[in-house]
Structures are given as structure tokens and as C-alpha cells.
Simulated assay, not measured.
Amino acid sequence: MNGPVVVGVDGSQSSLSAVDTAAHEAQIRGVGLHVVHAFIWPKMHVSLGPSAMGPADGGLRNLAVRTLDEAVARARAAAPDVEVTQDLITGEPLAVLEAQSRTASLVVVGSRGMGGFIGLLVGSTAVHLSTYGRCPVLVVRGAPDPTGPVLLAADGSPQAEAAVGFAFAEASLRGADLVALHAWGSWSERGDDDPGHPDNLVDDLDRLQSTEERVLAEALSGWQAKYPDVTVRRQLVRNRPRQALIEASGAAQLLVVGARGRGGFAGLLLGSVSQAALHHANCPVAVVRAGQLDQD
């Protein structure tokens, strides 16, 4: 899909950081940037204009307009060549962003917010947006290394194919290496000395590792041919997936995960691994759902 990059803003510092990232994404993709503020207050039946005792530029509507104007000015300063549009939309933030995702190539949000986007990563909210959005969702967080690689959570499942393609495309657009990390062996939270630990139920760990190496190679092979300009580094690690991803994200500029997985990344976005990435990764996290690349 060649739609614009959409960024949700609420006036928080986190959302302004999201504007910077979204402007860069729009620039490298050669598409426009659409800045959106969800204006929920009309639905709450409260006064939107300035109070009789307050300044003429006060009131909720004027605050929303200033929030948008500040974000747009920041976007234009970050990417002068990008066409920037804006929209003040009455509605609940997640419903607004979900609707915007139908024509967007990417939706970008901050990891924390206030006002219209308060609690964006609390509870099931991020899961909802990532699960039901029509395009990939990029959550801006951490302190990314601008010279670092794009980090891919690779599990070899058909459901993760879209995430693999997105990661290759991002690495190509950014001129970055791609690190494909595949965690195997320690799939559970049990200790290594637990008789029920998966590692202790396998007689031939070398054979299992060879199988996992083949799974990783097959997951990447077709995409490597499509993006010959991308240098790929494979990392096969025996570690808990969330620990491996969080540690590796410290040297990355972007972490890409699928919406679901198998093996080391089973239940991604439904369990602790995805929640750990969204809350604790040291760089922005892009969530890509199966089938989303088919919209291109």
C-alpha cells in the first residue's frame, strides 16, 4: 500500500517523538504524512470553547488545534520535503486510528500519552490496535541506535512472513543491516534444571539446533533474493525469546515482530513475549500482522 504514514498525537512528549519517527518513515518511503488528533470531548457533552472568565484562546477545541499545529510544525521541520496534512477527528482514539489504518501504509504512535491517547500501551489497548489495524503499527519507545541494525524476531512460521518482508523493506529503506534473531530451546519459564524443561526432553540438541538453523534459513531465503542490498546476520540463540529480544534491542534502531508465531515466539501479541517487547524494548517496535503486505 502506498498510503500515507499516519501518526497519532496528543501533545505529550512521547507523541512528539512519534512525529519525528513518522516524518522520517514518510520521507524514506516517499509518501505523505498525516497527523491525527482524536477529539473525544464532543462525545462527552462538555463545553469546548473558552470560558467566560478565561482567555479568548482557551478551551478544549483551541487546545486540540494547538496540539495539531505544534505537531505539524515539528513534522515539517523534521522532513521539509514531505507533504504533511492534519485532521482533528471526533471520536475515541483507538477507533480513530483503526479507521485511519485502512488507507495508511503505517500507523505510528508513542509509547506513552495523555489526553486523547492516554494509556495507549496499558492493558489490551496496544494489542487491540496491532491485532485489528489494517496496516503495520510502529510504537516509538526507548533510545534507538541510529547506526544499529533492524532486528527481526524470526520464527519461521507462515504467519510471520509479513513481518519478515516488512523488516527487509525497512532495512533496505534505512540502509541498515538486518539481524534475524531466532530463539530456540528455552521456550518456557522453567529453569534449565527442571526435568520438564524442553531442553531436557531432547536427546540430541545438536540435531535440534540444525533443524532450527534450517527453519531460520528457509524463512529468510526468498526475501534475501528480493533485497540483495540488505546485509543479513542470522542469530540463533538458546534463550528465552523475550530476554533475547530485549537484550538485542539495545543495539538496534528498530525491532520488528509478527502478530503471531510458533515455537520460541508462540502467541506473540497474546502473551508475555509481546508485552515485554512493547514495554521494555530499547528501541521502537513495529508489529506486523499476517497478510498486511498483501495490501501493497
Rank of each mutant, 00 (worst) to 15 (best):
M1T: 05
G3P: 01
G3N: 09
P4Y: 02
G8L: 00
V9G: 03
D10L: 01
D10F: 04
Q13P: 02
S15M: 02
D20M: 02
A23D: 07
H24G: 04
H24Y: 10
A26N: 09
A26G: 05
Q27W: 11
R29V: 03
V31L: 05
V35N: 03
V36N: 01
A38P: 01
A38M: 05
P42C: 13
L48T: 01
L48H: 15
G49I: 02
G49H: 05
P50G: 10
G54P: 04
G58W: 08
G58Y: 09
L63M: 14
A64I: 04
R66P: 01
T67V: 00
L68T: 02
D69N: 14
E70C: 06
E70D: 14
V72T: 00
A73H: 10
A73W: 11
R74K: 07
A75Q: 01
P80E: 15
V82E: 14
E83N: 06
T85Y: 12
L88T: 01
I89H: 12
T90V: 15
G91L: 14
G91Q: 14
E92R: 01
E92T: 11
V96S: 08
V96F: 05
V96M: 06
E98N: 13
Q100A: 14
Q100Y: 00
T103Q: 11
T103L: 09
A104V: 05
L106Y: 13
V109K: 10
V109R: 06
R112A: 13
G113T: 00
M114R: 00
I118S: 15
G119V: 02
L121C: 11
G123T: 03
G123K: 07
S130V: 03
S130H: 02
Y132N: 09
Y132R: 08
Y132V: 06
G133N: 10
R134T: 06
R134K: 11
C135E: 08
V140W: 12
G142T: 02
P144V: 05
P144Q: 12
G148Y: 11
G148A: 11
A153S: 07
E161R: 15
E161G: 12
E161H: 13
A167S: 03
A167H: 07
A171W: 08
S172H: 14
A176S: 14
V179W: 10
V179K: 10
L181F: 09
L181D: 03
W187G: 03
E189V: 12
E189M: 12
R190K: 09
D192G: 09
D193G: 08
P195S: 09
P195W: 11
P198N: 06
P198Y: 14
D199L: 15
L201M: 14
L205Y: 07
D206M: 04
S210H: 15
E213H: 14
E213P: 05
V215T: 15
A217V: 11
A219Q: 15
S221I: 02
Q224A: 13
Q224V: 01
Y227D: 07
D229W: 06
V230F: 05
R234L: 00
R238L: 05
N239S: 15
R242F: 06
Q243K: 13
L245A: 11
I246A: 15
A248C: 04
G250E: 13
G250Y: 12
G250V: 04
G250R: 05
A251Y: 09
A251I: 01
L254Q: 00
L254E: 08
L255F: 05
V257T: 01
G258I: 04
G261S: 04
G264W: 03
A266F: 14
G267R: 08
L270V: 10
G271E: 06
V273S: 03
A277N: 08
A286R: 09
V287S: 07
D296Y: 10
